[in-house]
């Protein structure tokens, strides 16, 4: 009873920090964008537009207002859930984000599954057979994939599977001329829901290469962290006790060591998920994947303030929420954690 009450208190305190963190992040983004050199008017009109045209555009976009007023308007809109409209296309930012976010989540989700399968299998095999050839190969793989520059790896995969073998598409979410059907924006889910096998096949074919590349790049850190934590756990007293009770090695590994070793891995997984939402930029660029990171990069180069602000706020919200969720999960799972 006491534990559940303090857990609720802990959860409430963690959740209360979310709006403060979001306010700080959004304020920083707002100010940094205005300090950064470059002008959205230049991005829209080009640098040759005369001063009258530039002023008219500035007025139309509301950029002629004092910075403080712009900030207050931005905060007011944000509180009311309005992320503004894109300077360049006058399209609502929420619409742009709702189009790009599912692509990023879909890519991140499948990459994470691939990374978990590969990473945990390698980590687990290495621990089960220490100093074996498999362990050595696993270690090399872990370090290698962690050190591999993502853009280079992505280009190699693209060249091998798309150009040399011709098995998979170069990039994009769907073939040229195909329309993304209305729905959740998650193509795999939408196609299964609508029983559209053709769309399912097309979307998986397009997803496979970027998700596998990202998954392989992430799997190294998963395998290494599992291996290290599992090895550490296997040296603990309760494992010795289990061995002395005559339990099988596989039982000890699976039911006694693995759950304990998974806690730090859970934290790493949480951080990885958070970073994936906005951090798969190089993969999204190489495979022309129309996700949130790519949209953010384009918006930054065009100095489209509302899009940048909107995306950063959404990413921050997700990162903070995942962080809080992982903290709470660990607090629930691990009785040793004090809060």
């Amino acid at each position: 009873m006491n534990r559940s009450r303090s857990l609720t208190k802990y959860a409430a305190s963690r959740l209360a920090s979310v709006p403060i963190m979001l306010w700080l992040i959004s304020t920083m983004v707002f100010l940094l964008l205005r300090i950064a050199p470059g002008d959205p008017v230049d991005a829209i009109l080009g640098n040759r537009a005369d001063e009258i045209a530039r002023e008219a555009m500035r007025e139309r976009l509301g950029l002629n207002q004092p910075l403080f007023n712009q900030y207050i308007n931005f905060l007011n809109d944000l509180i009311h859930g309005n992320l503004g409209t894109a300077l360049n296309t006058q399209e609502p930012v929420s619409q742009i984000i709702s189009r790009s976010l599912p692509a990023s989540i879909e890519l991140g989700f499948f990459a994470l599954i691939i990374a978990s399968i590969i990473g945990f299998s390698i980590g687990f095999t290495g621990t089960a057979k220490p100093e074996s050839n498999a362990d050595f190969a696993g270690r090399l793989y872990g370090i290698g994939t962690y050190a591999l520059p993502p853009f280079w790896a992505a280009m190699l995969f693209q060249l091998f599977f798309s150009v040399i073998l011709g098995w998979l598409p170069i990039g994009g979410r769907l073939p040229a001329g195909s329309l993304i059907p209305s729905g959740s924006g998650f193509l795999v889910i939408d196609s299964i829901k609508n029983g559209d096998l053709n769309l399912l096949q097309m979307s998986i074919r397009h997803l496979l290469l970027p998700a596998t590349t990202l998954g392989i790049l992430l799997s190294g850190i998963f395998s290494r962290s599992l291996k290290i934590n599992l090895t550490k756990t296997l040296k603990m007293d309760h494992i010795e006790a289990a061995k002395s009770r005559g339990l099988k090695d596989s039982q000890i590994l699976l039911f006694h060591a693995l759950p304990n070793a998974m806690l730090p891995v859970l934290t790493i997984t949480g951080l990885t998920i958070a970073s994936l939402i906005g951090g798969a930029l190089l993969i999204e660029i190489t495979f022309s994947w129309p996700g949130l990171a790519l949209k953010l990069q384009e918006a930054i180069s065009q100095r489209d303030y509302p899009i940048v602000q909107g995306i950063v706020v959404v990413i921050s919200m997700l990162v903070v929420s995942i962080g809080v969720l992982v903290d709470l999960l660990i607090a629930i799972i691990d009785p040793r954690v004090s809060y």
Binding site: M155, Q158, I170, G171, E284, I285, T286, F287
Partner: peptide, 11 residues
């Protein structure tokens, strides 16, 4: 269809 990198276009 648009691709983001010169290499993708070439490929």
């Amino acid at each position: 269809i648009n691709y983001k990198t010169s290499l993708s276009l070439f490929s």
